[in-house]
Simulated scan of single mutants.
Amino acid sequence: MLETNSQKRKRGLSLAFVALLVSLSAPLVLGAAIFGSKVEYLDYDTSFTLLTLNWAPKLATISLVFALIALLVSLFMAPKRTGPFALAAVIISGSVLGGFYVYERKLKSAPPIYDVATDWQRPLTFSEKLIKDRGPDAHPIEDNPRVAKGSSFEWDLKPVADVNAATCSGAQPVRNANITADKVAASLMHEGYMIFGRSPWRIEAVYRDPIYGFKSDIVVRIDPDKTDVRSVSRHELSDLGGNCTRVMRVVEILKAM
């Protein structure tokens, strides 16, 4: 009898330990996706669409089911020895799925856009050099972009200008005679942007997401009467409000010059 109980405890420990190892699969896939994207080895579709949004949540779901079974078994066999491993597996898998739940909530609450500007009457443009750097797979730079068809019941096919007005009220032109190209360039570099091109009346810069390294491009146009800003993601279908945040931050900086 003692020998049988010992064997059961060993099996329970093995199951819990395997569950812990399996629970690490989703975080490892996420880590590979983030690292591969950051060093520009993996493209957006592979790192984010495939690995992050497809493989990782599926692995986390399978891991959580396995971890719950292991936890249940450990409660009957050797809770003190096997329980911590099984519980850790549940926490790891649950945390990954929780992160995806938060992401889905943000995705539903944010407008499905990737373009924010302070002036749509006279749209800001980018240089041919920067357009080329964006690459053929990046979102096109349009004078009057619209929300993609089928992406949102609320915003479907509406002009991005209308979406900006409703959801990013802080994206407004700045009237400040102290603004100069040198000041703008210095401020953007201080904020972590890479200056891509400049002239006395326009500054172009590139922003890289600190996690995946996804790029967005920003242009600041300096006119005699006002200064405008536009920020456009390269690949994200929904920026989760990121471009609005960046434009409003630059607007704040321009006002303070």
Rank of each mutant, 00 (worst) to 15 (best):
V160I: 15
A161P: 07
Y207D: 09
A67I: 05
K255D: 11
Y101R: 10
C168K: 07
S169A: 15
V96I: 11
E191F: 05
G150Q: 02
A78E: 09
A181C: 05
T167G: 05
S152F: 12
V29S: 02
Y114T: 06
V102C: 09
F214H: 12
K108G: 07
G213Q: 04
T180L: 04
G150N: 05
D45R: 14
V147N: 04
V160L: 13
L188Q: 02
M194T: 14
S25W: 11
D156C: 09
M194L: 13
K38C: 09
L30K: 07
A32F: 15
T4V: 12
T61H: 06
N54Q: 14
L75D: 03
K8T: 14
F153S: 10
E191M: 15
L59W: 06
F17T: 15
T46I: 15
V39E: 06
V147A: 04
S127N: 02
L42D: 03
S93G: 05
K149G: 08
F126W: 01
F17N: 10
S95K: 00
V247H: 05
L13I: 13
R198A: 10
W120N: 08
R105W: 10
I62A: 05
D43R: 04
S169M: 13
G170I: 07
V247T: 08
T52E: 06
L24S: 09
I91H: 01
P79A: 08
V232K: 01
T245F: 15
I34A: 13
T61M: 14
H139K: 12
I218C: 01
L188H: 02
